[in-house]
């Protein structure tokens, strides 16, 4: 599996949101997209998913332009968790999650579909709420229920085969989660990558980005500003230039050697 952007751009309201971006997301790895608010991260992810038509350039899934792919193949090749869902209907969690695999795996039997939905709900920590309706859940629980639905889209497509799942695109997947559920969600992302699937996630917590990502892409003013392994990308110069932090906020963990951010000047005040 491969997902690559080739010179893609996007303009809205006369403003260029993403400029001429090229990047090849790798299967089996977690790639974190970081950057300040309004840098174009969500737009880049929407372009990669095919949700937005690219203003220029092309997006390839397995070396084929996504505009040429059948809806079923595309649905099985990539799935995306959006920031929020306007869902107000009272679906049970099981039905909601089972819905995820309807197009990507139309031949999967109803019982196998429901069984897989239950497994995924257990994996996101909602195993006790399978029959509950989604409107009765908290914001964080709803976010994880939608994560299970998105995972279902990819898992159903490879169910019963030894194929790797497709690309999981996650737009701020831990924004509504407490610390332990942040760990759970990012651990699920890593597990997906270990099984050969690709993961691309937008994340604002740079320490979590370093902890879970194999590759980091930094977006600044709609352009890819830096890319590479966390140790190389997250530097004091980047924190200062892209995020406006004072120098000396990025430290190196003594045990792992990985960078982390500690805004000690604020703590001292």
């Amino acid at each position: 599996m491969s997902l690559s952007l080739h010179n893609v751009g996007w303009c809205a309201g006369g403003k260029t949101i993403v400029h001429d971006a090229s990047y090849a997301f790798e299967a089996g790895k977690v790639t974190a997209i970081i950057g300040p608010n309004g840098a174009g991260k969500s737009t880049l992810l929407r372009l990669a998913s095919g949700l937005l038509p690219v203003g220029g350039g092309v997006v390839h899934l397995n070396n084929v332009p996504i505009s040429d792919l059948s809806p079923m193949y595309l649905a099985g090749g990539r799935a995306m968790l959006t920031q929020d869902s306007p869902l107000r209907a009272r679906f049970t969690l099981r039905d909601l999650v089972a819905m995820g695999g309807q197009v990507s795996a139309p031949l999967l039997g109803a019982s196998a579909r429901l069984e897989l939905a239950e497994q995924l709900l257990k994996r996101v920590g909602l195993g006790a709420f399978i029959e509950r309706d989604i409107m009765g859940l908290s914001g964080g629980e709803r976010q994880r229920a939608h994560l299970a639905r998105v995972m279902m889209q990819l898992e159903a497509a490879v169910h019963g085969t030894d194929k790797s799942p497709g690309f999981l695109l996650l737009d701020e997947p831990i924004s509504a989660q407490d610390l332990s559920r942040q760990y759970l969600v990012l651990d699920l992302a890593r597990a997906h990558a270990r099984r050969g699937g690709g993961v691309v996630l937008i994340i604002h917590d740079l320490n979590w980005a370093v902890a879970c990502a194999d590759q980091i892409v930094v977006l600044h003013d709609g352009r890819i500003y830096a890319q590479g392994p966390p140790e190389q990308v997250l530097t004091n110069a980047l924190a200062s230039h892209v995020f406006g932090l004072e120098e000396g906020q990025v430290h190196k963990h003594v045990a792992t050697g990985k960078p982390y951010i500690l805004p000690h000047n604020m703590i001292c005040q």
Partner: peptide
């Protein structure tokens, strides 16, 4: 958006 992403 979600319906389109699911392949509909």
């Amino acid at each position: 958006s979600d319906a389109r992403l699911m392949g509909y």
